[in-house]
């Protein structure tokens, strides 16, 4: 049986048109309250997948949920763990040191200003150096794809894409499918060369 591998979302550059609906859907899905109109979006859109547009390729890039996640292995406060076959950042534990951003070879982690219900989350004691007043600094934490772990319908990006360019990759199933396919093809033609 072996171990169960972490699945991840991957985009198909042949289908992606670069509309960024996935990014908007991602940001909407990670709000605690349900938002419908743009006018209700009171904080910046901070997606966890990022559209890449270069001359011949257009596609979003997001976390691969690495089995030996470098981000988790470099984290000084053990804020990144595997939960339910997903590599998850614990935002409460994260101290914003950005080591994981440097460690990730895909560029899948961003530093995101922290908000709760549309209001900035301020730090307890860290203030801005100012003579006349105490201004608490807004918290900023590492942010990356969590495969919409709290969403019953699965990843919002997959659902929102108008071109069905995003899909959930279960590599073990894909491996089995390809194994079966090659066996079928070989079986059908083997009599021609195994005389």
């Amino acid at each position: 049986m072996g171990i169960q591998l972490n699945s991840f979302v991957l985009a198909d550059p042949k289908k992606c048109i670069g509309c960024k609906v996935c990014e908007v859907a991602c940001a909407v899905a990670h709000r605690s309250e349900e938002l419908k109109t743009v006018g209700n979006m009171d904080v910046p859109i901070m997606p966890r997948l990022y559209l890449v547009r270069i001359a011949d390729v257009t596609m979003p890039i997001q976390c691969r949920h690495c089995e030996d996640a470098p981000c988790a292995n470099i984290c000084p406060v053990s804020a990144i763990t595997q939960i339910d076959n997903k590599i998850i950042i614990n935002e409460e534990k994260c101290i914003g040191c950005k080591s994981c951003m440097i460690a990730c070879p895909f560029g899948a982690i961003e530093l995101a200003a922290a908000y709760k219900e549309g209001r900035p989350i301020l730090q307890n004691l860290l203030t801005l150096n100012s003579e006349d007043e105490f201004i608490h600094k807004q918290s900023a934490v590492a942010s990356k794809c969590d495969l919409c772990i709290d969403r019953s319908n699965g990843p919002a990006c997959i659902e929102a894409c108008p071109r069905q360019a995003l899909s959930y990759e279960n590599v073990k199933m894909e491996k089995k499918r390809r194994n079966a396919e090659i066996v079928s093809k070989t079986g059908a033609t083997i009599k021609n060369f195994m005389v």
Partner: peptide
């Protein structure tokens, strides 16, 4: 009119 965040709405 108010713009939907997601056109599917």
């Amino acid at each position: 009119q108010p713009k939907m965040l997601l056109p599917k709405d």
